[in-house]
Design a protein around this nucleic acid. Structure first.
Lengths: 187, 187
DNA sequence: TATATGCTGTACTGATCAGTACAAATCACG
DNA sequence: CGTGATTTGTACTGATCAGTACAGCATATA
């Protein structure tokens, strides 16, 4: 009875949405089973180490998406402005203009962080480093590039928290707009 | 056998720390019982509606603390600069210079938000409103005050997320420093 | 059409969950 | 010293949890 869902990879988007909605602890295998359309048998066939392995796969998928769609462009683009511009567009798309939370940030806030420490740190460090590099190439001093990169990622994460808290996605789009302006203006 | 712990209020700080550490769903009554020193009997005596009522009490306590230590000064201070300065000091103290997460923000990120929707919104709206008021009195235009208040709260929340993600509290103190500078400089 | 492989559903395990019931213990107050 | 309200520990409930075991089905290859 091979492949109702052909690949383990096909389950990952649904897994991500479940973890985003309920957190790691709150995501029961029953819910996961329903949302992925995979029975327990299949789930443990694809993810022998259970829920932890599912979450790791999702975190890896998130990081890979950002690597391919954000970090690589920040690092490679001839014109650093284009890389940064692309980042804001990709981020806006990825977080559904403020209607979707950051899974990595959400995992970081409670003791779930301790289970996925390395992956969480990797995600944010890779982002910080790529953005810092782009800003330096844009003419920022080392110090200034580091500070500004941190400021931008801080604002994106905070805007996601506040948008969800107030149930007002525009908090997020306003924050992105401010950041774009902040970059193009001096400093 | 009245009062081993004299007041329901005495349990709230410990409750807050448990919820901060494990989230709402992850906080088991066993853990809560150990950390507060109260058996199940006592817990359900003080909080007849169980875990939900405990979390509500903690959220109310947080909001009251901010009302008394942050919002009131923002609204009442003769010199708005003093109110804002006091806010930064209080926030730095409250979040232990980046080593403590925001419980309200943490609750907002997953489906826990839906259980405490009103309280979460109240907390952030009260903060936004008080800060906007102070900025207007400091001479900011309506538009500018609203935008800047949102920017500050976004940055504080994001800095808490990123500090915990990278396990580097200085992310938070750097963000506060930037915000102070941002306020005192023009814009 | 046989066989091996890979996928799936179902039934189960023991642990833990939130919440309840209640009797015993303690103190305030008379 | 006794009575009554308040606080507490303990034992219990039924539900749900993550994870396991395994039989059986479907398909690809031969």
């Amino acid at each position: 009875m091979p492949r109702k869902i052909a690949e383990r990879q096909d389950a990952i988007p649904a897994l991500g949405e479940v973890f985003r909605e309920y957190g790691f602890l709150g995501s029961s295998l029953t819910e996961i089973s329903q949302r992925t359309g995979l029975g327990k048998g299949s789930l443990y066939h694809f993810f022998p180490n259970g829920k932890k392995e599912m979450a790791e796969a999702v975190l890896d998928d998130v990081t890979n998406w950002f690597r391919d769609n954000v970090f690589s462009t920040l690092l490679s683009s001839n014109k650093p402005e284009d890389g940064i511009q692309n980042m804001f567009e990709a981020v806006d798309r990825y977080f559904h203009s403020g209607k979707r939370v950051c899974l990595v940030g959400a995992f970081a806030l409670d003791d779930t962080r301790d289970r996925f420490e390395a992956r969480i740190r990797t995600y944010f460090c890779a982002w910080t480093d790529a953005l810092t590099t782009a800003l330096k190439r844009k003419g920022f001093s080392d110090q200034d590039a580091t500070e500004t990169a941190e400021e931008i990622i801080v604002s994106i994460q905070g805007a996601l928290v506040l948008a969800r808290s107030k149930q007002d996605p525009q908090v997020f789009t306003r924050a992105l707009k401010r950041l774009r302006r902040h970059i193009t203006a001096g400093s």
